[in-house]
Design a protein around this nucleic acid. Structure first.
Lengths: 149, 149
DNA sequence: CAATGTTTGATTGTGTACAATTAAATTTCT
DNA sequence: AGAAATTTAATTGTACACAATCAAACATTG
């Protein structure tokens, strides 16, 4: 597959030899694969990720959400406001430190958990991977993430 | 690492057990890693991907670009118009089929190739991966892409 | 305690992404 | 040829993403 000449700058510049493109494309296509399941719950994919954290932690600051999701306030603030409008969560300043905003689950957000809890299993089907392949890929991506983050 | 209980719906719903999140995060962080190199050329990451194809093919329709990048016209049309304004490429209807728009490199776009040709090698440094790891990850992602696309 | 510096969100502006709709051109079918 | 179906871009509207800037609250230090 890789002849000596394929390490030249010219070959490295071809789309098909990039690692970045399949990452970018798979990420978008996987988001699309979630879409039918999430749309049924009126959720977007980044909102689903916020819920994954809130279902685990119940209350987090915007900063903590940002650190865990690697998203900044320019993304999170409007996204969380939309989720607040749907009565899924509450936003209030931390009385002990007015700079922080505490995000907490409301009953409607808590209830969504039951409706969403089978989404991961359903997505596994779309990917058609063995448990081993899944784990290996996840581990490689997490390693790469720590190098890039 | 994975106890029997970790295959429950509850465990599958944790952010840390997802494959989708590291994919999403690595994709965004990798785009960020390109940023300093691309910004020096006044390019965005998706625009860079368009160039990778045009440097190979010289002239493509919007449809062909969309098929190769898995992007639709709602994304490509405004993106290509911005690139046209910078005189990097031309947009014209195909005389033989007026429904198609031909995208062709202009000299300024052709010239950018020399300025960009060492970007892939520089990015490899940021990822700190061996050739083998790189190839293995790329191959797994491409397999997954064909399943999702 | 007052001045300085830091932390934390919010805001603004630009650029993707993508679903859904529209419109024009072409192809197909009778 | 003419109607119907298909193909291809463009448009519209919503929702991220993120750099850059701002503003308020807190912490630190002399």
């Amino acid at each position: 597959m890789s002849t000596p000449s394929e390490n030249s700058s010219a070959a490295l510049l071809k789309l098909e030899n990039q690692l970045c493109f399949p990452l970018y494309a798979v990420s978008r296509m996987l988001t699309k694969a979630y879409q039918p399941y999430l749309q049924a719950l009126d959720l977007t994919y980044p909102q689903y990720l916020v819920f994954l954290l809130l279902w685990e932690h119940d209350e987090l600051t915007v900063k903590e959400l940002g650190e865990k999701l690697l998203l900044d306030s320019g993304t999170l603030t409007p996204l969380l406001k939309r989720m607040e409008q749907k009565q899924w969560l509450s936003r209030r300043r931390d009385p002990r430190d007015e700079r922080s905003v505490l995000i907490a689950l409301l009953p409607a957000g808590q209830a969504l958990r039951e409706a969403a809890c089978h989404i991961p299993e359903q997505l596994l089907g779309h990917m058609g991977m063995s448990q081993d392949e899944f784990e290996q890929l996840r581990s490689q991506l997490n390693t790469l993430l720590t190098k890039l983050a």
